[in-house]
Amino acid sequence: MKKLLTPAVFCLGIILSACSSTGTVEEGTGSVEDRNVGAVTTVTPTSPRSAALAALRDPNSPLSKRSIYFDFDSYVVKPEFQSLVQAHGRFLAQNPDFKVLIQGNADERGSREYNLALGQKRAEAVKNALLTFGAREDQVEAVSLGEEKPICTDRTEECYAQNRRADILYSGEF
């Protein structure tokens, strides 16, 4: 896949930059003034990092969602969480100086150390999905908190379900 795509994308880049000599990108509904339309924005009044941070904090953005929940005894990212992970994977690809820590968790039943290892499996599942969606290996660290940091402490199935979770934390946020 990589071999196929690279030359095509590379040529596109050259041609697009050639065309940008016109100074405008006219397509769809976008106007010259609307800098947010299209993939290419040449003028950014704010720094890219702060814009990216704003995107992370925008409550309407999928990036504001940071928790992935897992089924009992399961360590795979469920389909309903794939778009969330995809959004973060793309964001990390677009913002190569950003890094994330993924903290996996487990419910409290059984051995603390074994639960730590189970939480790690959840964190690794999210990490692998992020890499698939474009993040770099050195941008992502998967760790586990095991059963040590539950967000819910009741001994109910609903509560255990909330603790079967992995959280994505961006550097500077923790």
Partner: peptide, 9 residues
């Protein structure tokens, strides 16, 4: 021992 003081074990 294992300490989580750095947000990871």
């Amino acid at each position: 021992y294992v300490s989580f003081e750095a947000k990871k074990p």
